[in-house]
């Protein structure tokens, strides 16, 4: 049996708001197998963001166990989480989150910097990732010189450059017009076709329908 990429077992995340404890995720269990394309769908306030933070190793569960590609997240300290993010996760955000005043090439190469990859190798791999996404002629452009769709493709290239176990896309079409959004979705489908494991977090049922499997979140619980 293969090791699941994601394994959430009875995970809860409770925010301590002074006197009241607010549960954002309540007893959630979820498994994602290698090569799956899963959409986590829910309206705002359903716990999507918390889910994204937990899955992305930006936050730890209050209760329950989370294993990412076999690694137990709960035992890791901040540095350990950073190393796990660096090695295993590629993020694609709604607002692209490219480094400002930094060229597309340097943006895509940045995750490799934190893996200790040498400069020449960083440039080579970043250039290859950009070319694969059809941005070969945009390597020296800064984010402000790129359209939204192009910025999001640079972000996808950055997510791919470390060859991570999981691509985590948080509302990747939210800031794009329908045409550019559709392009990003077809790009994700293409990556899925190439064997990538993708988790897509969205509030939009249309976007979610492009995934193979949909997980509905409501009030911090997985709805049937």
């Amino acid at each position: 049996m293969t090791v699941p990429i994601i394994s959430l077992e009875r995970v809860s995340r409770v925010y301590d708001m002074g006197r009241v404890a607010v549960p954002a995720l309540d007893d959630v269990s979820l498994g994602v197998q290698p090569g799956e394309f899963v959409a986590i769908v829910g309206p705002s306030g359903s716990g999507k963001s918390t889910m994204m933070n937990i899955l992305g190793c930006l936050d730890r569960p209050t209760q329950g166990a989370y294993r990412l590609a076999g690694a137990a997240v709960a035992k890791l300290d901040d540095d350990g989480l950073a190393r796990l993010r660096s090695r295993s996760i590629g993020f694609v955000f709604q607002s692209y989150n490219l480094l400002p005043r930094t060229t597309a090439l340097e943006n895509v190469a940045a995750p490799l910097l934190y893996q200790g990859v040498g400069r020449a190798e960083r440039v080579r791999r970043a250039r290859a990732a950009l070319e694969r996404l059809g941005l070969g002629d945009r390597v020296d452009h800064e984010p402000t010189e790129l359209s939204g769709g192009q910025q999001q493709r640079v972000a996808v290239a950055r997510a791919l450059v470390t060859d991570p176990a999981l691509i985590l896309a948080d509302e990747p079409t939210g800031n794009l017009d329908s045409h550019a959004g559709a392009e990003v979705i077809s790009l994700l489908r293409e990556l899925h076709g190439a064997g990538r494991t993708i988790v897509l977090i969205t509030h939009d049922p249309d976007v979610a329908s492009s995934a193979d499997r949909q997980v509905h979140l409501l009030d911090g619980r997985i709805a049937a």
């Binding site: 950073a82 993010r85 660096s86 989150n97 490219l98 480094l99 400002p100 934190y114 470390t162």
Partner: peptide, 13 residues
Amino acid sequence: REIGIRKAIGARG
């Protein structure tokens, strides 16, 4: 925000 991005893509403290 830049610091947040860098942390997300693997920078340690």
